[in-house]
């Protein structure tokens, strides 16, 4: 058994919704993440999938300690990260780094690549003495497949894929153990996306990194992940190995999500059994009672409105699912055909 590097326990993050300017009155809460638990093992990739508004980016922010959780804990090697401060917090920040989605807005346009990638060393001078920094940066550029000679260029002189490589180099600078990737390839074209995915895999093998890989693209997540967690409206609805989620999903939402993914193979057009969900995701300010998916679920019964289904292993299945009526369904076979 490998050790858990990050343990998330009943994590809750609510944002207040206020009205008024001077006398702000809280009129409700956006329940962005509402009771999420999972483990990240050393050296593995945990994929987190879900549609917009499901709380996956909030999860990333809490994991990075950019937001304090409303309740629950994020434990890094047993330490509660939201309780750390000062030197201990700074040491922790070295270990968990973030790669952001938008390579256009996440790099300061007035800093050269050398400054951007070297900035972490300013904050953590113990990692690289001042004299060796430029060499370190050049090494990092080479590592992510960029020309080390371009160290004095500015972000606008690079394409989207190259900028994402700069972002990855910056995240790697402090030799972290965990990298949280928040939609790292969704802004990129298909051919460039594949290059960046290969790079992420190569770096993981080389440095034994653990990834939390957040994305909405199910095939990208499948390619990179060892385990996958599916989120819906602030909750995890199903967790399992990549195989369990994609081949034997038991939660209706996972099934619908998988069946809706267009398969890049015209020959499966006719044979595809697609589950069409009705309507939109409800507001996270007032999520439905009981199971949050029930308003769009074809299996919903009275019990779904009354009782919140727990994320647990259900009879006839081998991995946790948060559905009262979890069962296997042969719908996703189309994915193999490709």
């Amino acid at each position: 058994m490998t050790e858990n590097i990050i343990e998330v326990r009943d994590l809750v993050k609510h944002y207040p919704v206020t009205r008024g300017v001077v006398f702000k009155k809280t009129i409700g809460h956006v329940k962005a993440v509402d009771g999420v638990s999972f483990d990240l093992k050393a050296g593995e990739t945990l994929g987190v999938v879900g549609e917009s508004g499901c709380g996956k980016s909030t999860l990333a922010r809490v994991l990075m300690n950019l937001e304090k959780p409303t309740a629950g804990q994020v434990l890094y090697k047993g330490q509660d990260i939201s309780k750390l401060s000062g030197g201990a917090l700074r040491r922790l920040r070295r270990q968990i780094q973030l790669v952001m989605q938008d390579p256009y807005t996440s790099l300061n346009p007035r800093m050269t690549v050398g400054d951007l990638i070297g900035e972490p060393f300013e904050i953590h001078p113990e990692v690289a003495p001042r004299r060796s920094r430029r060499d370190k940066v050049k090494e990092l550029l080479d590592l992510v497949g960029l020309n080390p000679e371009h160290i004095n260029r500015y972000p606008h002189q690079f394409s989207g894929g190259q900028r994402q490589r700069i972002g990855i180099a910056r995240a790697l600078a402090l030799r972290p153990e965990v990298i949280v990737c928040d939609e790292p390839v969704s802004a990129l074209d298909v051919s460039i996306q594949a290059q960046v995915m290969n790079l992420l895999e190569k770096l993981q093998a080389e440095f034994g990194l653990s990834y939390v890989f957040i994305a909405h693209d199910l095939s990208v997540v499948r390619h990179l992940s060892d385990r996958v967690a599916v989120m819906y409206l602030g909750k995890m609805v199903e967790v399992g190995t990549e195989d369990e989620i994609y081949e034997r999903p038991t939660h209706p939402y996972t099934q619908a999500l998988l069946s809706a993914v267009p398969v890049p193979d015209p020959t499966v057009r006719e044979s595809k059994a697609i589950i069409r969900l009705q309507g939109d995701v409800p507001s996270p300010v007032s999520p439905p009672s009981g199971c949050r998916f029930r308003t769009r679920c074809w299996k919903a019964q009275d019990v779904c409105a009354q009782e919140v289904p727990l994320l647990q292993i259900r009879p006839g299945s081998d991995h946790p699912s948060a559905c009262h009526f979890a069962e296997k369904r042969e719908i996703v076979a189309t994915h193999e055909a490709a």
């Binding site: 298909v190 051919s191 996306q193 594949a194 995915m197 290969n198 895999e201 095939s219 990208v220 499948r222 390619h223 990179l224 990549e242 994609y246 890049p264 994915h335 193999e336 490709a338």
Partner: peptide, 12 residues
């Protein structure tokens, strides 16, 4: 370039 199921774990 599309990630495919039967090539999981392989380089794209």
């Amino acid at each position: 370039s599309i990630p495919r199921m039967d090539e999981k774990g392989q380089e794209l």
